[in-house]
Write a protein that binds this DNA or RNA. Structure first.
Lengths: 254, 254
DNA sequence: CGTTGACTTGACCGTCTTCAAGTTTAGTGG
DNA sequence: CCACTAAACTTGAAGACGGTCAAGTCAACG
């Protein structure tokens, strides 16, 4: 095993046939043909340490990844350092697709926890399109889903108040995390992010974010716990944000 | 010709072989095979009158469109009527893909000018994936491009000031419009939107948007002209927004 | 045991919102 | 052709929401 920059490439501990994600109800069932193709499409596993950067804005990447375990986030920077978190990445999410298709990464990705990724070759993506149209369709599906999430985030930043935004963000992350078993069996989901991350997601200052989260905590909708948030009442948060929630229909997993 | 709700379906005045968009340098060249397939994929043309709604959030659509002429915008609403404009659509942009793939539309689309659309059948999309992997790849390309634009818009809403946001938005629209000849040959691009649209895009109030645009107009970077804005100095706007601009590499057109 | 990163809290200030009252322009019907 | 209306834009004033500044506490870490 090779270790560098908080990254290490391991042998394949999780063959696709024994993928821990695939059996979850959140994902659509796959045919054995599809599974066999994905299995040879997958080149290995990459472990990224908490806090290190997976992909960097402005660079080219020879790889494409799917998250197997852990949390991360996508972000962009302004020249003077202002940072905007665009979305969070969780198990089942593909990262690096935009860079694979358009050439250069337009955003960066950082690990919020230790992260395990399935590694694919960018150069083989086109072969997938030629040989497995159903998987190609799935990849477009994933891109459309990401677009949907970004649309909702834009609505949030543009038109929701600070309290609504915070409620939306936490309810949103909770629902995604719960659907892929990120709570690890425990019922209230625990999100490993700092208030700085939340502030950079909501487009608010750190100070104001702190005061806003306190309001939610005072109402006992969330709880603070050693550098992470626990979501106690996702339903109440959704109501504050006036968010109906996402549909939860099974989605593809590549 | 049938007319209903400001919509009319015409015979095919623009066969794909004589597509006015395709020769533009903004689009990648296509093989004759691809062109032939797209030509039979296209079912007709739809004309939508300025101000009418093309697609509605929460509904299912049997169609998928590509914009041939004109301007429009995608938006989402909050229950109480707050509106967020997500992005603008211009010639060469595909609309309704998200709904075609995921079933239900998660946003609405409205025409800013009279709009002419190429109409495709949602049900034939999968056949395209089976028969023309190169076009399937192109569709993913377009989805990735949309994602890129949304990321930049999120950065803008979250981390740019009102003046920077306005400058970014106008420079952004200008560069997209210019690349597809929406200026109609005239050098400064004229954007047919109201200040209400701009406000709903920037996440600002109408009053503050008005005052912010005035600052840009006072510096002679933009000019107001009969219910539309003229962009005089895109370069200066980009500098205010600290935006480097998009790459301008040829993109696919389906 | 000093340093660092994360969180907290209060005070003050400015950007942006809201309210209110206008003007101008385009469209409509008498 | 003109009065009427609605939509879009404009402007000023007051106030709220959120930002910035400053000075803390606390836990983890070498």
């Amino acid at each position: 095993m090779e270790v560098k920059n908080g990254r290490s490439i391991s042998t394949r501990r999780y063959p696709c046939e024994k993928c821990p994600l695939r059996p979850l109800p959140a994902f659509r069932p796959f045919t054995s043909d599809e599974l066999a193709f994905i299995s040879q499409f997958k080149k290995g596993e990459l472990t990224v340490a908490k806090g290190s950067t997976v992909l960097i804005e402005g660079t080219h990447s020879a790889h494409l990844y799917t998250v197997l375990f852990g949390w991360g986030f996508r972000y962009k920077l302004l020249e003077d350092g202002r940072r905007q978190v665009l979305n969070y990445v969780m198990p089942g999410d593909m990262i690096g697709l935009q860079g694979s298709i358009m050439g250069e990464m337009e955003h960066s990705v950082e690990a919020l926890s230790n992260l395990m990724l399935c590694v694919f070759e960018r150069d083989e993506l086109y072969a997938l399109y030629r040989k497995f149209p159903s998987l190609a369709f799935d990849i477009t599906w994933l891109a459309a889903r990401e677009e949907c999430m970004l649309d909702e985030n834009l609505l949030s930043l543009g038109r929701r108040t600070a309290l609504e935004r915070a409620a939306y963000l936490l309810a949103f992350i909770e629902s995604r995390a719960a659907s892929v078993g990120l709570n690890g069996g425990k019922s209230p989901v625990e999100i490993p992010i700092t208030q700085t991350h939340i502030a950079d997601t909501l487009g608010l200052s750190l100070v104001h974010t702190n005061k806003t989260l306190r309001k939610l905590a005072n109402r006992k909708l969330i709880r603070w716990l050693e550098r992470s948030y626990v979501i106690l009442e996702p339903e109440a948060l959704r109501e504050i944000a006036r968010w109906s929630g996402s549909d939860g229909a099974p989605r593809p997993l590549v």
